[in-house]
């Protein structure tokens, strides 16, 4: 592909103290692609995701979003750390959805959605509200705009969280185990919204345990274990004919 990839991870590493969470990860995600990252817990999947929007700093390697270095500016052969304002500017185009929703509990669903567009993009309230209502309809919660998060089910909260991220019109959406905190009967409604999003052409990186979703929606799946990408490829190949023993062992447990 000649176009700049949406995300390029070039041998990135990250450690917390002596714990090497990521060890030389290299991945590429093209615009419009859906990448699912699977693997046992503690394999570094979530950390990798959080590095992409610079919630975590990487220790080694280079990470690019749309060809732009994440968190740093290169001047000659030296890297300069970005100011908080510049880092925030990079995050504007990256939406993130968390395992535990992280909605703002003191705001209604609608207020949650309009915050960032109003505060960050300085969009007038009326316009932001109109857009937020569209998004609420899109995630199937048009009638819940005035509800506080505490009065919504987990699945509804996560759909509001997706709408909140979409309100910034991101080019890339990161999902950090979006259905892991949900009751089983609520998983489907969130996955449906994500499927619709994938169909609409959104570039997505999804850390998930939902193998069915990964098989159906992903353009490629990466299997991570022990801080490395053990194997990556199209769903059919990775799930149907895994090459590595560790992949086989993991898949035999979850499929």
């Amino acid at each position: 592909m000649s176009a700049t990839p949406m995300v390029t991870a070039d041998r990135i590493s990250k450690s917390f103290g002596s714990n090497n969470v990521l060890r030389s990860i290299s991945l590429e995600v093209q615009a419009g692609e859906v990448l699912c990252i699977v693997g046992p817990s503690g394999s570094g999947k979530s950390t990798f995701l959080r590095c992409i929007n610079h919630l975590e700093k990487i220790d080694a390697g280079r990470l690019f979003v749309e060809g732009q270095l994440v968190g740093y500016r290169q001047k000659g052969d030296k890297l300069h750390e970005l100011k908080p304002k510049e880092a925030a500017l990079q995050r504007r185009d990256i939406g993130m959805v968390f395992q535990r929703f992280n909605l703002f509990p003191h705001m209604t669903a609608l207020e949650n959605i309009i915050q960032a567009p109003m505060r960050v993009k300085r969009i007038p309230k009326a316009k932001a509200t109109l857009r937020a209502m569209e998004l609420m309809e899109r995630v199937g919660l048009g009638d819940k705009a005035d509800h506080y998060p505490a009065h919504l089910s987990g699945g509804q909260q996560q759909r509001v969280a997706i709408a909140r991220a979409l309100a910034m019109d991101p080019k890339l959406m990161l999902f950090d185990e979006p259905t892991s905190a949900l009751d089983p009967e609520l998983v489907g409604e969130v996955l449906d919204v994500m499927k619709e999003l994938a169909t609409s052409g959104m570039t997505m990186i999804v850390v998930t345990h939902e193998m069915g979703f990964a098989r159906e929606v992903a353009d490629s799946i990466a299997f991570m274990d022990g801080g490395v990408v053990v194997e990556a490829g199209p769903p059919r190949e990775l799930l149907g004919n895994p090459q590595q023993d560790r992949t086989k062992a993991f898949l035999s447990k979850v499929l």
Binding site: L55, G95, A116, A165
Partner: peptide, 15 residues
């Protein structure tokens, strides 16, 4: 997670 979500939405520390 609140601060994290807010940061991920590109809001500044002050906001």
């Amino acid at each position: 997670g609140q601060e994290e979500a807010s940061t991920a939405l590109a809001m500044s520390w002050g906001q």
